[in-house]
Structures are given as C-alpha cells and as structure tokens.
Design a protein around this nucleic acid. Structure first.
Lengths: 253, 253
DNA sequence: ATACATATATGCTTATTGCATATAAGAGGC
DNA sequence: GCCTCTTATATGCAATAAGCATATATGTAT
C-alpha cells in the first residue's frame, strides 16, 4: 500500500511540527545595475544590531505563508521600491517587471551572531533609472571583485571603501560570478538597459560586467544571429554623429 | 559610529531568537549516476508518513550546528552509504570523495503537507560501482525528462513507472537541467567515471546526459585542447580490438 | 555644403569544426 | 607467426565562424 489515504491524514492531524529546533530563514536580494560604466549594487544601511550602521543587502525573514520567490519580490518592493517577478513570465505589470532569480543559499552556522540564520539569496537586474536612492538609508555602491577573491569590495560615489554586514561580501561575489557566467550563454544584458537600445549599448553592458574588451563585429554578428533581438526601425537620437538603430529583446522567443 | 562593539554584544545577549515563526529546513540530495547508458538517481523508499512507501530523494533536517554543505555530506553518508566531501578539495580520503554541490532551494509553502519546510537541494555525481542498492529501501531509477516538462519521470529496472514524494520530481528535473548545462563549460563527466577512463567513455557520458550524438573528432580535440586531461600512458584492457589510451582528470588545475 | 564621428557593410585572413580517409594496434583464430 | 577484426589515432581538406582592416553611409553641428 503506497497510496496517500486517510491514515496519512490522521498522521498529519497529530503531527507535532515543533519537535525539531528550526533555523530562521531570510531572503537577501542583490540588486545589480549599471551606472557610468560601473557595475553597482543597491545596499541599505542597517538601523539595528548586529552590524548597526553597516551597509547590507536588502533582505527580510521569510514569512510562513509566502514562497521564497514571493519573499524576494516583497523585499524588492518594500526595501527598494521595485516591482519584481521571478522567471520570464512578466505580463500585466506597470513597469515591465524586474529580472529576479534565485542565486544561492548561504547557511554557515555562525554567519549571523544572533542565532542560526539561513539566507536564500536572490539577484535582480535593474535599469539604473528605476533605482531611487532614498536619503541616507539606501545607496548604490560600485563593486570590485579582486582577482581570485571570493568576496567583493564596495565603494561609494566618492570611491570610499566600506565594509559589509554579515557574509554579504561573499554573497555579492557569487552574484557577480553568476551574472558573468550567464552572459556567456544568455543575452541577459537587456535587463540592465531600457526597453530599446543600440548594439553598442548592449556591448558596453557586456564589457562592463565581464571587464574585457569585446570584438565589435563579432559581438554584433553573434547577437543578430541569435535571433533574440528585434530591430525597431527607429534610431537613437541626439548623438552628434550617425545614430545607431534601436533594438528590443524578443520576449516571445 | 559603525564599529561593532560592546553595545552590540549587549544587544546579542538579550536577543530573543524565538520572536519569529520559523520554517523547518531540510537538505535533499540528488545522487546521479550512469548505468547501462542511462542517467539514474538513487532514491529511498519512505518509511513514514506523509507519502508513506513513496520513493523520495534521500534527505534530512539541517541540524542547528552544521552548515548546509555538512548536512548534505551527512545525508550522502548516512542515507546512501557514500562518503561525500564537499567541494573539490579532496585529499586523504579512502575513496576519492564525491562531487557534491548545491543545486537550488525549494520553498513553496505547501510542498510538505505537515508544515512549512524549505528544502535546500544538492546534487552528487557518483560512479555507479560505488553505489549499493540496499535491500528494498534504496534503489536506482532511470530518469526521463519529457521535452518541455518541468518534472522527471522515474522507472525502475523493469521499466515500471513510479511516482515521487513531495516536489521531488521537480527537484530531479532541475538537477538534470543543471548537469546538462554544466557539461557545456565544465568537464564534469569525469565524476561519473572511474579514475582512469578512455575518451570514448567520456564521450558516452556526455552523450547519455545530453541525449545527443556528438562528433567524435571534435569531442576528442576539444577535450585534449582543454588541458584538463592527462594521459596515463596505459591502455584499456580486454576489448578485443585496439585499446584506447586511459586518461585521468588533472586535479591540480 | 562640409566636417565629424560613429554605424553598418564588405572582403580578406586565420582559427575552428565537421567529415572523410588512412594508418596503427591489441585480441583472437588459424 | 600471420591474418582478420574492430576500433583508436592521425592526417587532410572543405565548410564555417571569428578576428581584423577597410570602405561606405548617415544624422548632427558648424
């Protein structure tokens, strides 16, 4: 007998869910954007202990009724004022929703000095113009991953270096590695640009993220051959020289 | 003032860690192997409600003192009789330790009917000869991902189809997708072969996992050019025709 | 109208891949 | 030992793609 039945229902009715000690679970969201040719992340200044006044990833505890994806979208909305949806199904939202995807789960027993906290990290890609830096509490920081390092360094707009709370420097490093890897087989750079963009802009996105120069012709041919770009027939404006054609991402494919 | 200090210590001493409701957290481990030209997974038959007598991924609750990686290695050891060591640093073990890596975290609120359970899934790659199918409780099942589906179908050695407990069919599908993707840029097929293997065997691994035929010359050239293979100078034995050279994975690189 | 600065197109060179063919080599039969 | 079988390995060549240089096109600004 291996069907699920009333005996199982009886079991469930009598189950003591408090039998095991349980960790706390949070989601932390790496919000990446491009500004002035730099890869940056939106961070919030902690207003509580531990790590009071340290900069940290926006995050929050997972509520028992919400999925992890929902918790990440809630953090994006509440802490960063951004409307995000996981996955590529993104219909019927005000702005086109934001790219949001699970990154990795961090669970070192001492990563939070208060208690055992497991953090499911997400990352979001956001066009810079959508980001509001609210007062003193949220700000964009430039990211640098020293070669071979497993954590990032962060710098504010004056290029002053800061420390990060918890293990967030490692989480950011995993996010940067992930997006670099993903660029190799996915044209994810769109997500950091306006809906319509030129090939040059797209190449700049790749070059900024990968920290390398790319061959222009090769990049252009590869992108056009991928069939994921759709020419709009329109041209960019106000550039003082020959304007490039604007393309958009072919969502339906 | 943003340094961590005695005030923070006082805060921590008084912190009430029970303030929020917390989910349970488990690790589930997808143990993949190749047998007779099929990709298979090691599953265990549940001896408890819910899903009594259903086949499921080996798993267990994360203890408060152990990291997620440690919990996954413990499950591999205790539930599958495999000595898993996390990551690629693998010195001084009896068998060469097993490839084990975090896969994805599953957290739908109703994925477990007992209570809120978040599962951090791992996947392991194991050479078939290391796997013991113990009695009625553990067995290898062939995996099939129907095109476009987001869950796998499992079949026993008589090709009888079974259902899986919880959302484990989706977890397995994510694992298959992950290893397929990973083959494109990592020579991960080694992990499913003995220490020394021929190029033909390695190609068979790729073809089985990817479900495609590969060009032999191209595969051979690419693998040799990658610099990750090291010829041993030895030849395979007892094949009735010209034996191929045995290679090994260059661990130090 | 012309200069400017970059977009886009074209052609050539070089590297990579796919495919066909030739040669090599252990096992096993005689 | 010699021949055959079968697959491994090497070589050559055509097709394809990538890298690079050059030519032409085109909006803006003067």
């Amino acid at each position: 007998m291996n069907r699920r039945n009333s005996e199982e229902q009886r079991f469930l009715d009598n189950y003591d869910a408090t039998a095991f000690e349980r960790p706390s679970v949070t989601v932390d969201v790496v919000i990446l954007t491009l500004r002035e040719g730099h890869l940056e992340a939106l961070l919030v200044k902690r207003k509580e202990h531990p790590f009071l006044n340290y900069w940290s990833l926006p995050g929050g505890f997972v509520q028992l009724h919400e999925s992890l994806d929902e918790a990440a979208a809630r953090v994006l909305r509440q802490k960063a004022g951004l409307e995000g949806v996981v996955g590529l199904e993104r219909e019927g939202a005000l702005h086109p929703p934001i790219y949001l995807e699970q990154l990795y789960t961090f669970g070192h027993p001492q990563r939070d000095p208060r208690m055992r906290v497991i953090s499911v990290a997400y990352y979001a890609l956001v066009e810079a113009s959508h980001i509001r830096e609210v007062g003193e509490e949220t700000a964009l920081f430039k990211l640098r991953v020293p070669p071979g390092a497993d954590s990032v360094e962060i710098f504010d707009h004056k290029h002053k270096k800061y420390s990060l709370a918890f293990d967030h420097a490692e989480i950011l490093a995993v996010a940067v590695r992930r997006i670099r890897g993903k660029l190799g087989y996915t044209p994810i750079g769109f997500e950091l640009l306006p809906e319509r963009f030129t090939l040059r802009q797209l190449q700049n996105v790749h070059e900024t993220i990968l920290q390398t120069k790319l061959n222009k012709d090769s990049f252009r041919r590869k992108m056009l051959a991928s069939g994921m770009l759709e020419p709009t027939g329109e041209l960019e404006r106000g550039v003082g020289f020959r304007p490039a054609e604007l393309y958009r991402f072919r969502r339906e494919a």
